[in-house]
């Protein structure tokens, strides 16, 4: 196949306004628009479908028709750059954040961000979490220089909106209803074993975990957590970290 013909085929595939490459024919037509449209449709429906299955709660919030229209714009302007379709849509939350027709649903992009993180957690590397018993073996006098490695699936999404409950309601995990306590959420996404878990983090925990992810020792992480929210409670957070299986190693800095 001449390179120029494949390039032209690819361009016309993405732009229905362009005429078909002249060498594309069928036994019934010299310009088989409807047959060529099967390829266009396969590409578009496939990409929209990939986004629909990755962002079910986002879709439920805006409705099927609106979602398909938004997904179509995204797929047209940001087609996949990799054959790994599991990564397709990593940029969809950012796209939604600046997608004018969705502007009045201010929390939409953050809910999509949570769903995108869930897929990454699903495919993240496996690692055995430390047993909660390991927590009791930590030398309490040397807590400050403890280095904790978090599970590779851990992601934190900080939002001004109650995205955990909005997501849960639209993912079918909770009944739809008014959100009683409308405040910002720090959401934790993690997959310590095989199930992807989503939970709301307590005050300061997001800064704490982000600091640990950046390889800060426990003392430094606790300081930045307390700076971000004075209500941060180190003992509670440390216990939760181990009981939730988020730590895969904890070693004292030599």
């Amino acid at each position: 196949m001449p390179h120029a013909l494949q390039a032209e085929f690819a361009t016309v595939l993405r732009d229905p306004a362009l005429p078909l490459p002249t060498s594309v024919i069928s036994h019934t037509s010299r310009t088989p628009q409807k047959r060529f449209a099967v390829y266009r449709n396969n590409v578009m429906v496939g990409l929209i479908g990939a986004l629909e299955s990755r962002f079910p709660a986002t879709r439920r919030i805006v409705g099927d028709e609106f979602f398909a229209a938004a997904a179509r714009v995204f797929a047209s302007t940001q087609p996949p750059r990799s054959p790994l379709m599991m990564t397709y849509g990593d940029e969809f939350p950012d796209f939604l954040a600046s997608f004018e027709p969705a502007a009045e649903i201010a929390y939409l992009a953050d809910v999509a961000g949570l769903e995108a993180a869930r897929t990454r957690a699903y495919h993240a590397a496996d690692a055995a979490p430390l047993e909660p018993a390991a927590f009791s073996q930590i030398d309490a006098d040397r807590l400050a220089d403890l280095c904790i490695v978090l599970h590779p699936s851990v992601e934190i999404i900080r939002s001004q909106f109650p995205i955990v409950v909005i997501w849960a309601m639209n993912a079918g995990d909770m009944e739809l209803g008014p959100v009683a306590d409308w405040r910002g959420d720090d959401a934790l996404v993690a997959r310590p074993a095989l199930d992807v878990e989503v939970r709301r983090l307590p005050p300061g925990a997001a800064a704490f975990l982000q600091s640990l992810s950046a390889d800060a020792p426990l003392g430094t992480a606790a300081e930045s957590a307390a700076a971000s929210d004075p209500a941060f409670d180190l003992a509670v957070n440390l216990a939760a970290l181990f009981s939730a299986g988020l730590a895969i190693s904890a070693t004292h800095r030599p």
């Binding site: 390039a7 085929f9 690819a10 087609p79 379709m85």
Partner: peptide
């Protein structure tokens, strides 16, 4: 083609 994956 051209850095785009068409998924078809």
């Amino acid at each position: 083609h051209g850095g785009i994956f068409f998924n078809d």
